[in-house]
Design a protein around this nucleic acid. Structure first.
Lengths: 245, 245
DNA sequence: CGATACGTTGACGGAAATCAACCCCGGTGG
DNA sequence: CCACCGGGGTTGATTTCCGTCAACGTATCG
């Protein structure tokens, strides 16, 4: 089985945030991995698990989440092609949250052992992964700010800006339009709102001429307006090319 | 100037989350650093800065924060002795948030160059730092959940539990009592609430017999009750010894 | 075709924000 | 020495944003 196509999603993602040596790129492309397809709403790993491999998203959308004892769900992050959302399991043995697909997805699993090998051989890759972890953390901080200090309207605008910027970085946006296979309930759990309020807020964003949505796809009609509405400043994403637009 | 005393705070902190070889410990203790004392409310680094060294907190409390365009402040994390809150500047050149002291503090600055050297010589230390970054991220996720899905009462209870657990891990809690040189306004900015509401909520926590506060110190009167009130589960802190109590 | 998931709408209630005082205390300077 | 000031904490009154509850529409699918 040739898995280099799957690995190339990872290379492209890492190159969107850092510079890789040719050596490192080749090593990444040679990484042994098991590729599988799963449907939407599939739990990849659950809180409490002790994974022995890491999951690379080749295609599709995933999210990290946690269910509180009261049964409320909070989504911490959305993940897209090229992301390795449970890279942390390399160093943190027990999962403190869960990871699930949002859309039908293609996943590639890489054994911890092989990643450790790779890291030993290529210090540059350790740096790249560490940098990726740091950026993840920066995104989490931004979400804290988003949920803690912005109104519903701002929160959703901000979230859409972030997704657009990240999808742009890996080439998944065409003329302001991108796939967003995410229900309003999931947007609610990501922004700390109720589904009802998300529904009304999306209507406001549409009424303001900032976006349109149909099926699972979003079109940004007024990028400057959306950025302003969400107080969006892409610095925290630490992308190499800077601005998305 | 002998700085090994300052570095020992770092060693103790790292040992609370991972195992260090004797070799690595010695190297950490020999790290060149500049120690200075600063007052409360001092900005260590600001959003937009490009630091060339990292800051180790030797004594005192600090926080990371960001001011939104509307002038609202969100605190992302509290930091205590042994923490290196801007370790990220090693790999992310431009600060995406600010870092400030909350109390009079002793800080040690370590040049990026020296940390890079250290990492090159001791891969075990890279792992330790990476693990630390991963735990930081786990704490951010927990804060997202806290702010997004818990009531004011739960949020503050949870925050107090977290601080107690972390201070316990480095030996800064005596019989349920610990220093917390943090104003109600700062608690508000950490929990996404208003100062008025924090004030009322603290009164409720006191009335429930869970805590007492005076001057800058907190005593937990009912640890089980506080944990229950905050839905606190310390797993996400990934401490080596497990439970704080 | 009924079941189910997702989106939408209206009515109502509540948690927390906002606004506005007021208190206490330590510092400071006239 | 005391008046003044500012920061932090406290309180009450009012407002508002958003949650909850409940119903209904629509599309997809076994």
């Amino acid at each position: 089985m040739d898995t280099s196509h799957s690995a190339s999603a990872l290379v492209r993602k890492l190159e969107s945030i850092t510079k890789l040596s040719d050596d490192a790129k080749e090593a990444l492309l040679r990484l042994p991995m098991n590729v599988t397809s799963v449907g939407p709403g599939h739990d990849i790993v659950r809180e409490g698990d002790r994974p022995s491999n890491c999951c690379l998203i080749v295609e599709g959308f995933a999210c990290r989440y946690k269910i509180t004892p009261e049964g409320k769900r909070q989504i911490h992050a959305f993940h897209i092609a090229g992301d390795m959302p449970d890279l942390q399991s390399l160093h943190l043995k027990v999962m403190d949250h869960s990871l699930a697909t949002l859309s039908p997805s293609k996943l590639a699993f890489i054994a911890h052992h092989d990643i450790h090998e790779l890291c030993r051989a290529h210090p540059g890759i350790v740096s790249a992964f560490w940098r990726d972890t740091l950026i993840d953390a920066a995104v989490f901080r931004e979400w804290i700010t988003n949920i803690g200090r912005r109104t519903a309207y701002q929160r959703i605008a901000h979230l859409l800006c972030e997704i657009l910027a990240r999808l742009t970085a890996i080439g998944l946006v065409q003329g302001g339009t991108f796939d967003l296979p995410v229900t309003q309930a999931e947007l609610a759990d990501a922004t700390g709102l109720s589904t009802v309020h998300v529904n009304r807020t999306l209507q406001e964003l549409r009424a303001a001429g900032l976006i349109t949505m149909r099926d699972g796809s979003v079109t940004v009609r007024d990028w400057e307006g959306l950025k302003a509405a969400g107080e969006f400043d892409p610095n925290y994403l630490h992308l190499r090319q800077g601005e998305a637009a």
